[in-house]
């Protein structure tokens, strides 16, 4: 029984990473209708930049705001330079562009920092909290708090500020928004900036656990894609809940379903996602888009 609970807790901890990354995916998707395959590599890049600052001897909490701002600027820059020309070419060229970005950023990181994995200090310190025979590391608890904070801020930005309002307007009906004087490109750029900043948090939550290397987010990205689809690509809460479901189901399946083990366990979150979207195509929290003929 204790092991079952601990496995669930372990799955939740892993799900935190998928959840934040899924959140970033959903922000870009809502803006452009693009599944950004490069989101994971962009996040990893943020983690490498953080490490560079840390090596200068700066304290983590001073580096954090700098990295978040730099990530946002980087995301906006990518939108402005390479995504902009393809903005109106439909989802397939954008999907393919994401692949090119993934390969390019991955190669760039390997060139600059090498392919070895390196330790990344936990901002929350080393240690374990134990209660009722269950444990969580400081890092896992800190990640949970980070996730809740990022989620809250993102929801506030989207639902309570004029920035969010305009972002949603541009996303839902680009033509009308343009007619109303909202420059579509500008708001998409801002959307990419926000997504990159959220992604940076994902990397900072992941790097101390996974150790930092250019390929760090390759595997989490796949599960984050499942998480975002499961929870609903248009819903921020959905992305996070999706991440947690994916994490827990992956962990429990690997342990308790005979024959799946550590490698095939990922089948289970994918199957759950497929069943959910067959029943509810917009995902658990997603709003179905009405189609006008």
């Amino acid at each position: 029984m204790t092991e079952l609970l601990q496995q669930t807790l372990d799955g939740l901890s892993a799900g935190l990473i998928y959840g934040i990354l899924a959140l970033a995916l959903s922000v870009v998707f809502q803006g452009t209708g693009m599944l950004n395959f490069a989101q994971g590599e962009m996040a990893t890049l943020s983690a490498f930049v953080t490490l560079v600052f840390l090596q200068f001897g700066m304290p983590f909490w001073a580096v954090l705001p700098i990295v978040i701002v730099l990530s946002a600027l980087g995301g906006a820059l990518i939108e402005r330079t390479v995504v902009r020309p393809l903005e109106r070419s439909g989802e397939l060229p954008l999907l393919t562009l994401g692949v090119a970005l993934l390969l390019g950023i991955n190669a760039m990181m390997a060139i600059i920092w090498g392919t070895n994995s390196r330790p990344f200090p936990s901002p929350f310190g080393q240690g374990v909290v134990t209660s009722l025979g269950l444990r969580m590391t400081y890092q896992q608890l800190g990640s949970l708090i980070t996730l809740l904070a990022v989620l809250t801020v993102t929801i506030l930005v989207f639902n309570r500020t004029s920035i969010g309002l305009r972002l949603r307007a541009v996303a839902q009906n680009p033509d009308s928004a343009t007619l109303l004087g909202q420059h579509r490109g500008k708001w998409l750029m801002i959307g990419w900036g926000i997504a990159a900043a959220v992604g940076a948090f994902a990397a900072l939550v992941a790097a101390p656990v996974l150790t930092l290397s250019p390929g760090m987010m390759t595997f989490p990205l796949l599960l984050a894609l499942a998480a975002a689809t499961l929870g609903g690509l248009t819903s921020r809460v959905g992305a996070v809940v999706g991440g947690l479901i994916v994490g827990v189901s992956n962990s429990l399946a690997g342990r308790y379903i005979p024959g799946l083990d550590g490698d095939l366990a990922i089948v289970v979150p994918f199957v759950i996602t497929a069943i959910v979207v067959v029943i509810k195509p917009a995902g658990i929290f997603g709003k179905a888009r009405t189609v006008r003929v």
Partner: peptide, 10 residues
Amino acid sequence: GQADVASQVT
């Protein structure tokens, strides 16, 4: 490439 191993350690 799979590095989240808390579940396996448990």
